[in-house]
Design a binder for these strands. Structure first.
Lengths: 317, 317
DNA sequence: TGTAATTACGTAACTAATTACGTAAATGTA
DNA sequence: TACATTTACGTAATTAGTTACGTAATTACA
């Protein structure tokens, strides 16, 4: 199909499906050619039954990788053609023991020749190719087992998007962004509190001058995320990660994660041994993010924020 | 799937189908991840429409290699999602001109990122393989276009079978085989008659010396099939095909067919215009074989055999 | 120019798989 | 030992394609 050279790999599913159909279509004719009363879709079931004495529907399904209703249907069709017989298991009334009939077993003789010829034909065909389709499928199966295509694409997406994201140190030009981005989510979920106003209205005085830090995430040079590292006045903790906010427009670009990583890195450069944070369990994506960053829940502590119902820390390595 | 390493190439169709399904399943999630209102099966249709202004159902079908009802269905679904619009062609009232809507066109911007990420992901995956799946499919498509799998298997079958089966002219050493193979089936289904004894006991005198011929089919050098061409004493027919017998042990090797072909060939070399035969309708596989060889039923004729209830002839071209 | 052939495309029926769900039997456990 | 859970597997509905067929419009040609 010339078409697929234009679409690119996007259409690999469609392309595979078409090849599959072409091959299955020929398979029907091939069985006829050998005068074997069998359909291609029966083959996997037939194969496992030809190896063993008797099997249950579920066992067959597991072995060939089909759903059990699919096997159930195939068995019913094969029973109609007198290739297999069903028998209830005496010990376990649920089990439907399936095995080949005499006619079914007889086929295994005839099918041997077909097996030889097909293998030969494919072998010869493969000799004319540079890439072995059979092996290629095997390799894909193996690699997708380890990491699905979905995961692989997701990683590419993150990587591409974070290429447009830049994490920079706070400068006064971002004072407005720092305030707005935070106010947006705080007032959406909770209400602005005394401590919020202090930090957001005067970040220089309340955060930076006290030995803290603020980072800004730029997406295509627009500030879309912010996060602060605040010096604490506590015997247990030196630094708190707080005031993390990402614009809803920039969601799904991994910006929260990049900010978190950078803040922890900053704390490390300040010589901190751990970082503390406060949050609320209704903010599920945030809590997930904190976990991904290595934060774990700690026992409840004193806090100036009403909305805080969970406290976490990460140990810096 | 470990399973397929046991079955061998026979199950390449099943294996392909499974990989296809796994990939298509992920594709659904991938579209969701990019927040694109599209199903994988729409993609080929979407793609061709994104290239051109407007197309007919049949043109799209031809381009993407689907049947036109399939495209018709997809278009209806896409209309429901406001991705494409239909418009009757003014010049030709049969044609249903399909094109992308504004919403449909808008997707092409979003889809570009997805396209990049999928291609990257597959590229990276391919780097970890020794056999490039995409190229392997391409190569199979190309080779199957030139010669289908069915044809390739058929050639293998012929080659294998003719390697073991040899059709040779009768020599006295096969006298016993000629008699035994025939007596075996005649006495299984009917009873030996006067005319049988004559021909089987003295083939030289009763068949060869009268201008007939006998062929022997050797399978791995063992005589497993025999067939005679007997000169007739009849104004309508010159030659009769008779005394065809194939050992039950050698059934399914196409030996009857090979013998039949060879006997007709022999009759042709004798200058015959047609060949006659007598049989009995209870011998269904035999009658089938005769049909395959080109024989057709003719009106009832006089016969020395009690068991004959059908007469056939083939016209030699 | 009338009729036959071809083309476009919709509907219906079929196919080979799936997921969803229900029921009966077996197993685990308080 | 009663009750909850798990297992085996059948039926129904869904999906993404196919082939078969019918009809209307266009084209070819005697």
């Amino acid at each position: 199909m010339d078409f697929f050279n234009k679409t690119g790999k996007m259409a690999i599913g469609s392309r595979l499906r078409m090849l599959t159909e072409k091959i299955t279509e020929d398979a029907v004719s091939i069985y006829k050619m050998y005068d074997i009363d069998m359909q291609p879709k029966w083959f996997p079931v037939y194969y496992v039954l030809s190896q063993d004495e008797a099997k249950t529907i579920t066992d067959i399904a597991k072995e060939i990788g089909h759903s059990h209703p699919s096997v159930s249907k195939i068995i019913r069709e094969m029973v109609k053609h007198d290739l297999v017989a069903e028998k209830k298991d005496k010990g376990d009334g649920r089990r439907n023991m399936v095995s080949l009939t005499t006619k079914g077993k007889a086929i295994s003789e005839k099918i041997k020749d077909q097996y030889i010829d097909i293998n030969q034909a494919i072998e010869q065909l493969t000799l004319q190719t540079r890439n072995d389709l059979w092996r290629a499928i095997e390799e894909w199966e193996f690699l997708l087992e380890q990491k699905t295509l979905l995961q692989r694409v997701r990683e590419q997406k993150k990587e591409r998007e974070s290429a447009n994201v830049q994490i920079i140190d706070y400068t006064p030009q971002y004072k407005q962004a720092f305030r707005n981005l935070n106010e947006e989510w705080i007032s959406k979920w909770f209400k602005m509190e005394e401590a919020d106003y202090k930090a957001l209205d005067a970040p220089q005085e309340y955060i930076l001058d006290r030995g803290g830090s603020i980072l800004i995430a730029l997406y295509k040079n627009e500030p879309v995320g912010v996060c602060a590292l605040i010096k604490m006045d506590d015997p247990d903790y030196e630094y708190e990660m707080a005031k993390m906010a990402v614009s809803p427009k920039a969601q799904g670009k991994n910006i929260g994660f990049l900010l978190g990583i950078a803040i922890i890195e900053k704390a490390k450069s300040f010589g901190a041994a751990k970082v503390y944070l406060e949050s609320n369990t209704i903010l599920k994506p945030a809590i997930n993010l904190y976990h991904k960053l290595g934060f774990n829940k700690v026992a409840s502590r004193n806090t100036p924020y009403e909305r805080s119902n969970i406290q976490m820390e990460v140990i810096i390595k």
